[in-house]
Amino acid sequence: MNQLPIHLVVNKEDYHLFVKPNRVLLDVLREDLELTGTKEGCGLGKCGACTVLLNGRPVHACLTLALQVDGCEITTIEGIGGEKMHPLQEAFVDKGAIQCGFCTPGMINTAKALLDENANPSEEEIKQAIAGNLCRCTGYNKIVDAIHSCGCQSKKKKGGIK
């Protein structure tokens, strides 16, 4: 099984790598790029802990072969926010939406993709979007609250500019 070349843009940085065909994106992110923010939960595409953004859209890094995303842009939790936390991350902290934290990277990625698509989602839309992200600690209410408050904030900001 030969290693094959791929080019990935992860968190806006270029990576030229050689990977074996049987490695999923999750392994390459965690082991080769040492971006261990992305978690492996079930490894079977059910829990959403491994959610990363592929060209801006949430996907399971555990079910996506690395070679399959050659040339694509990937965002992991390390690429969200910068010097300061992203407003979503702040909202998760403020609202107590993090307990053990294992689901949080995937949850934030899904939420970010939702807010990028729909700046002010309804509670129902938030629940639909995060349906594929399991959290065994919080009971989801605080997560939904956090995403909702962030949506409201971005609406306020837009209003302010006008």
Binding site: G48, T51, P58, V59, A113, G132, N133
Partner: peptide, 9 residues
């Protein structure tokens, strides 16, 4: 079908 993550790919 599946979750948003599944529908996206």
């Amino acid at each position: 079908i599946g979750s948003w993550q599944v529908r996206n790919i």
